[in-house]
Design a protein around this nucleic acid. Structure first.
Lengths: 152, 152
DNA sequence: ATCATATAGTGCGATATCGTATTAACTGCA
DNA sequence: TGCAGTTAATACGATATCGCACTATATGAT
């Protein structure tokens, strides 16, 4: 009656494919972004627009699942470039809140313009057919992994 | 008659999920590996065993889709730790061939032992049901991206 | 055979990522 | 209220990643 257990090697294979695709997509994105701008930079700005700004650094680190020191570094860079403002968090004096500036928004829009042709081209490829269910599937796995991690 | 084009935002979402899962899985793997050993180190040793050693550094860099300077750095570390040998390539005096040592094999086996319980546990999770078709799907996309990249 | 061009690997410098430790502020309980 | 333990952010140091440039060697055209 119990479920047939899957092959552990398939889990290895899954993360292997994901690692290589991550590598390829990152290289592809960064080839389109202006020199010196990495996906990690763009991702923060994009998140601030899509999810809304006024987040704390820790909230952002959790969202991206990166150590908070990594995010601290990224935020310092974005602030130096004038793309975000970090202001004190009135609710917690240890903390801050991150706001995207007009320049940050403009940069993000420009970056999306640069990336869109590739995205649109890929979206038309037969290999991407039914990608919505693939994304759902990956989202489930991501949520599961999130949960496992939090449980540690 | 033409195919309905997919939504470019789904492609963004796809790479976003993949990026986060990569981050999570890497953190999880590295938590199990001995201190100072990264997934990038393990991946090279694993590849040398699975695909066979005697590869050139460039072949390895291509397999992992990382810049050759990155791999050069990794190989230097693995050699310093005694896990690989780099010998001249008799077919091309510019080049080298990479051989895994007995210590390298032993380390890889030990690493797999450390990782296996997690893999086995995940393989039993309902969320991983049908993961074989997911892996196939990702492999197709990876191959497509490889091709696009080579065409540049 | 010569030479222009391409390729394999690495040195170097810039930056990213991450773990550890530190500081300041918060929280909960005596 | 006071204090112990927790938490948010960051400084710092170690290492990873990557682009650029360089050297040695290979290749292909004449």
């Amino acid at each position: 009656m119990s479920e047939e257990p899957g092959d552990p090697r398939l889990i290895f294979a899954l993360f292997n494919e994901i690692g290589i695709i991550e590598q390829l997509s990152r290289a592809m994105f960064e080839a389109r972004l202006p020199k010196g701008v990495l996906v990690s930079h763009f991702a923060v700005l994009n998140h601030l627009v899509r999810v809304g700004d006024g987040r704390t650094p820790l909230e952002l680190a959790t969202a991206f699942q990166v150590p908070k020191t990594t995010l601290s570094h990224t935020l310092a860079l974005l602030e130096k470039r004038g793309w975000i403002d970090m202001r004190p968090n009135p609710d917690d004096k240890r903390s801050k809140r991150v706001w995207i500036t007009a320049e940050g928004r403009a940069f993000r829009e420009d970056a999306i313009e640069r990336l869109s042709p590739d995205m649109a081209r890929m979206a038309r490829e037969p290999v991407m057919k039914g990608v919505d269910s693939l994304v759902s599937r990956l989202a489930e796995i991501r949520q599961y992994l999130d949960g496992v991690r939090d449980a540690q």
